[in-house]
Amino acid sequence: MSKETAFAQINPMVCFIYIIGAMALCMFTIHPVAGFAVLFMTLLCYVNVCGRVVLKKLPLLLVVYMILSLSNPVFNTRGETILFTYFGGRPFTLEALCYGMVLSAMFISVMLLFGIYNRMMTSEKLIYIFGGLAPNMGLILSMVLRFVPHYGNQIKKISMARHIKEEGKYSKVTNLLSAMTTWSLEAGIVTADSMKCRGYGCGKRGRFSIYSFKRKDIVVLFLTILLFLTVMVCRVKGGLDAVFIPHIKIIGRDNIYFVIAMCAMVLYLAIPIVINVTEAVKWYILRLKA
């Protein structure tokens, strides 16, 4: 694992809101130009956040994209321009193909965003977010994360101790899990009683966090919300309208809302890249001085 990028170091709450917002933007975009712009920007972001290694995945993505786009006209036969017919007259239409291409672009963008999410939102950040909104759930989350490797080791120990005993596969699993149940519950009760003795549940509840809310976080949060709302307003005003079936009709450059929405969308998805690149440039200059 490489070290965290600059964007991953901003406040997890902001990060989470940003990614959810980006996914929403992708899912609501069926305008072809906007769709491909979003796909391009998310791809840039993905490479920027996850490193150049992911470029190896590009051919695979392309194959998935082709399959998804080409499969849409097979399921969906509506549309005016028939490219060719197969299976004795089942039409393969241009409109359905275009629709499929835009939908696949959207689908791949969302998948890339989930890739970014998996990379940036580590489990401790999720606990930080949950801990603020729902303290009990946050506590459970962090405990389970600790218990899982712990129990994995214990299962290994128990199965090693029972190794010599000859038993069937299923009775072995059953016995192992029964033993695990007793052991883990008893250990859990001890933990709980120890928590209670140290004053869990009385007094005001604090929480541990290593994340602070800096000026940079506020700026990013503000930009995120502003750009997201801009795009949504333009959408409602019809700036990103596109109809594919029965014939293609899309909003063009002459619509002012379309231009604004496109700019806002590209800017929105450029936020992580800008942050990461600025940080890299800063370091480069610092190194030059040294």
Binding site: A134, P135, N136, M137, L139, I140, M143, V144, F147, V148, H150, Y151, G152, I155, L177, M180, T181, S184, L185, A187, G188, I189, T191, A192, D193, M195, K196, Y200, G201
Partner: peptide, 30 residues
């Protein structure tokens, strides 16, 4: 979730839920 957060849960309840969830996950993996 809200109902669970609202009532002030005992330490034992929280720990037991965590233990059972962890058992489910571990057994899925193991």
């Amino acid at each position: 979730i809200c109902g669970f957060e609202k009532k002030r849960s005992q330490a034992r309840e929280i720990v037991l839920i965590s233990v059972m969830s962890a058992l489910a996950i571990v057994s899925r993996m193991a």
